[in-house]
Write a protein that binds this DNA or RNA. Structure first.
Lengths: 126, 126
DNA sequence: TTTGAATATTGACACACGTCTATGTCCTAT
DNA sequence: ATAGGACATAGACGTGTGTCAATATTCAAA
């Protein structure tokens, strides 16, 4: 629980990102070396139980965003460790970050989520 | 290219697996610790550029299966390293393995692929 | 301006991971 | 029975990763 009393103010504007519109579905044709490298970076960021839970918490919070002070709970981990995991997700382009006063809010980037979804999509091209 | 002359015989029967029907979508509610652990194992297996390309090659091969002798090409890696990566994918439940004569054929497990797809699915529940 | 709280950064450490060489196993053809 | 090829396993080695304690930074309240 946050120990400060002020209420988080506004919603974040959705951020549009095209850096990740690279990921072909896994199943249609062999990936190129570059596609595989890019996709693997994304997947490595998310391939950790703590980071998966963090992503899932951010996504299911009201407004799709969450304060670090709320995210830290439920983990038996030190504050720097949580901060580290959030940084990994942010550096991979999966989470957006906004500081409001003393707090920092994280929000999932739709483009990155879509890129992950596309990787494992099974629709046959139409 | 395979150095043996015999032609790969039959198709594999599709394998039905329920061990992986565990993965809730990431976005609807916070994952449990167990869900995150299971999903992270799957993701870690696939979060490597070589393994991504291997998966993609297997999936896009005719009949959805591929011989190790064909998979090894296109990589600047030793045969044991390719074998190691295939084992990782197999141990994670992503690839099925069948030995036919001297060759070994790998085939993607639909249930595991579906589990990965579900993780990042954005459909809202219906 | 000083204090205290929220978060990030740094540096250290143990462990996991990707790769290789060397070797083993299993199958087929001779 | 033997030889050779396809694939797996074992062991070694360097690098990457998750974690922590300690410290720095930034902001708000008093």
């Amino acid at each position: 629980m946050c120990q400060y009393s002020k209420v988080p103010p506004s919603q974040l504007l959705p951020v549009i990102d095209d850096r990740l519109a690279c990921c072909t579905p896994l199943a249609r044709e062999p990936m190129t070396v570059e596609q595989a490298a890019t996709a693997a970076e994304l997947l490595k960021a998310v391939a950790d139980p703590v980071r998966l839970r963090l992503m899932s918490m951010v996504l299911s919070y009201e407004g799709g965003e969450a304060c670090v002070c709320d995210l830290g709970e439920g983990f038996d981990l030190s504050q720097p460790t949580i901060s580290h995991h959030l940084k990994v997700l942010h550096d991979a382009g999966l989470l957006d970050r906004e500081k409001r006063g003393v707090w920092v809010y994280y929000r999932a980037r739709p483009a990155a989520m879509a890129a992950l979804g596309d990787l494992f999509s099974t629709d046959l091209g139409l």
